[in-house]
Structures are given as C-alpha cells and as structure tokens.
Computed example of a mutant assay.
Amino acid sequence: MAQTSALSVWSRMKKQPLAAVGLALVVLFLICALFAPWLAPYNPAHIDLMDRLAGPSRSHWFGTDELGRDILSRIIYGARISLEVASSVVALSLLLGLIFGGLAGFYGGALDVTINIFAINAFMALPGILLAIAFVAFLGPGLINLVLALAIGGWVGYARLVRAQVLAAREREFVEAAKALGASDLRIFMRHILPNIMQPLIVQSAIGMAGAVLAEATLSFLGLGVPPPTPSWGAMLNDARAHLFDAPHTVVFPAIAVMCCVLSFNFLGDALRDYLDPRTRLSVGL
C-alpha cells in the first residue's frame, strides 16, 4: 500500500514539475530552519571588519556583509525567522478566521451581519501591510509584535473563506441529520462541517505562508521586524542598500532567498489546489 501511494505521488509530481520544485524548496528551507546551527558554516553574528564586503569565495560562499558577517550563515538562520513568523501568522490568522467566519456562517442572521460589517468589512477597508506597520510602530519591533501585526491584517481572508464554506456546508443533509439527532452546535461544527471545509483552508494556508514570508521581509526591510543582530532576510536587504553597486552580492543572495521561499509556497499551494479539488484533478489528469 505504501509503495503504491509513493508511486502515485511520484506520477503526479512528474505531471506537475513546478509542484516538485516547490516541495523541494520548502523541504530545503525547513531543513535550514531546523538544523541551522549545524548547517551554518559560521556564527551569523560574528563580526570580522578585516573581511568586510568580501565577495563569494571558498571560505565565504556567498561573501560577507558590511560588518564582515558570513552571508550564507545569515541566510540559513534567516530561514528560521521567516518560517517561524510565517507559520505563526498563518496559524493565528486561521484560528481567528475559523472563530469569526464559523460563527457568522453557522448562525447567520443578525450575528452574520454584525461580524460582516463591524469586523470583516471594517478590517478589509484598511490595507493589511499599513495596519501591520502602524501596529509594530506603536508597540515596537519584536517577534511577538510582528506576528500579531501580520495576523491582525491577515485573518480577514480566512474568515471570509470559512464563512462562505460554512454557509454552503450547513445546508447539507448530514448536518440536518446531526441536528435532528440532537447533536450540539459545537459537535456539528467540529465533527461534520470542519472536516468538509478543510481542503480550501489548506490551500489558502499554503499560499498564505508565501504572503507572510514576503510581509515579514517587508517589515524587516523597513526596520520594523525582529531587532538586530537576529538574522532576517528583509533586514539584510535593508543593510545592503548602500552597497548595491560596490558589493552587489550583499543584495542578490538575500533577495534570491526571499524569492525562492515565496515561489515555493505558491507552487505548493497551486499543486495542493489541483490535487484536492476533484474537478481540477480530472481536468489535468491527476
């Protein structure tokens, strides 16, 4: 059975090369984040002013920055920050979306109107990144503040998706049967509705990881992310702005890391959407 499943996955990967690339990159970044102390050749905070702005070489594969710190080591440790922030933001946004979207979709009526107007639509009227910038600027930079700031603007998309899915699922026959048997509202939602709306939420979460990585890099670039000397891809790009022409490697490698990480989750999200949607699976021959 396991061998058949593995062959099935491999056959799907061959039909979707971008999915294989996305999965491979996600695994690579996860390995970097989990095993950074063993993979990084140098201490990411070690300063060597005698070797500042050195180009790529055998001793420093990606070169060094303006303080002589090894760029490869900082990129590897930066993967830990990016994925930690992104996964926390997606988890918190999904939780808030399930709560507010689930309540609005399940009960409907006045509660639905209230949540829609005073919560979902109100937050949608504000650009998420500007709301995050204002939040972090008010509370100060830091990992927890960064996660909260991004989740405040990111939960609305999950809430709208959950509400739409719950509105459709609550009219299904198995939900009506559970109500007729006297099941509680919480049991109906957790046991009957939630498992049937997980597919679009999984896809949305994968794509949301890409957005969260990019948003974290943006705030760190603006100096509103994790405080130094903690390695962050966005902060590395901010520090390298002054050396774009005399030491372009200080910009190129962190930018490539951000680009590859964002693309990997987008590729993975598209592959999950094609695989989890039966109509798409039939159309593409999966």
Rank of each mutant, 00 (worst) to 15 (best):
G101V: 01
A271C: 08
L272K: 14
Q199T: 12
S82L: 07
A215N: 08
N43E: 13
F100Q: 00
S82W: 00
L161K: 04
P278Q: 06
S220V: 04
R69N: 08
I115V: 10
G269Y: 00
M259F: 15
G140V: 04
Q165H: 02
D65Y: 04
I31G: 08
W38V: 13
R170M: 02
L272R: 09
V89P: 02
M124E: 13
L130S: 02
L92D: 02
D51I: 08
A240Y: 10
F62Q: 10
K15M: 07
W38S: 13
G285T: 01
A125I: 07
S87D: 00
A183D: 13
T218E: 10
I188T: 07
S93H: 00
L111A: 08
W233D: 00
L150A: 11
M124V: 03
L201R: 05
N116K: 12
V262N: 07
S87V: 10
W38C: 08
L222D: 06
L263G: 05
V258N: 07
L286S: 11
T230V: 12
A110M: 13
N266F: 14
L282V: 15
W61A: 14
L92C: 06
W155N: 04
R172D: 08
D274Y: 04
G101F: 07
L186S: 15
I256L: 15
Q165N: 10
F118Q: 02
A235P: 08
A169R: 12
L150W: 02
V213N: 00
L94R: 03
L39T: 00
R69W: 00
P248I: 07
H249R: 08
S205Y: 05
R241Q: 13
H243I: 11
R163E: 00
